[in-house]
Nucleic acid binder design. Structure first.
Ligand SMILES: [Mn+2]
Ligand SMILES: [Mn+2]
Ligand SMILES: [Zn+2]
Ligand SMILES: [Zn+2]
Lengths: 158, 158
DNA sequence: GGTATTATTGCTAATAATTTGTACTAACGT
DNA sequence: ACGTTAGTACAAATTATTAGCAATAATACC
């Protein structure tokens, strides 16, 4: 589906800033980006945008269900496209790498715990923090996930 | 153990502000408090303290392992005394009530997931958000957990 | 106990991240 | 195309937290 159609489906008008941001999220080499990551990446790609707009649009995307906001330990909010199913996260405290996982047993036990406590569950966040294999074995992470794309392949226009 | 001894054991000098804060955490009717909750509660109890000191001391307590810091969805940091063993949290989005739980199966699966990913785990946070039974059945929570103690039973001095 | 040494406090001012106000534009239904 | 309404850019405001620094309080030593 086109980005424009995705915005429409989410009940959002198709505007250039929104297209740029959605496009950046879809094409960036890193999946979990802060508002400023998105902003800087767009500037680096030669796109013009305001930081406040990035914040505003990311929040709209969150409310529309287009992106998920995460609050990893100690840091600012990071956003990821809501294109895969639900999953939880393993964060390396050394290199910042984020590994995603889904564990059916954990999900089921969570539901059970909620049921037993009389809670109707809305959502949950499970973040695990540790040190990844790359750092432990090679002293540094194999892939530098902090690198942002210098060119935005889509979002080119006119 | 006395509060003073607890501070010593944690490698912190016994000072009046630290005693007041530790005492407040030990005696408050709510377990999970923001820095400002602690600050306001102390003022309400007639105790004098600076807000910056509360932030500073809570961070020191965190580093010393005396308290745990949580970042519940959307809100500011909340602190709880590290006197029980590890547990995770169920937060009611309506009344703010916090239920604690420990599920051995979840903990074990988490370890397994980390092992399989080559991660050495340091810590994790699992927060579940929903609506509690009290709200659903009575329209409001039975216990108002937001109420702060007006008098500090300990920490009186001289 | 009295005094030196040094950590800690309580201001207040500074930050960092995010949000808001507003005058200016762009989108889109007709 | 036109008008209405929503969205944008930029600056200024907020909110939560931290930093700078002079005044104080807590051990250490005599
Ligand atoms: Mn999950
Ligand atoms: Mn746990
Ligand atoms: Zn993810
Ligand atoms: Zn707890």
């Amino acid at each position: 589906m086109s980005s424009s159609a995705e915005l429409k489906k989410a009940g959002l008008k198709t505007t250039l800033p929104r297209l740029k941001i959605l496009s950046m999220l879809e094409n960036a080499s890193i999946r979990h980006m802060t508002a400023e990551d998105v902003y800087k990446s767009l500037l680096d790609s030669g796109e013009e945008i305001g930081l406040a707009t990035v914040y505003r649009v990311l929040t709209q995307f969150e409310n529309a269900g287009l992106v998920i906001r995460h609050n990893f330990e100690g840091g600012r909010s990071v956003f990821e496209l809501n294109d895969e199913g639900h999953h939880d996260h393993l964060v390396c405290m050394e290199c910042g790498d984020v590994f995603e996982f889904y564990d059916k047993a954990i999900e089921e036990r969570q539901q059970k715990v909620a049921d037993e406590s009389g809670f109707v569950l809305d959502n949950h966040s499970l973040y695990m923090y540790g040190v990844c294999e790359g750092i432990r074995k090679n002293g540094k992470c194999s892939i530098n996930k902090r690198k942002l794309p210098s060119i935005l392949t889509t979002s080119k226009r006119r």
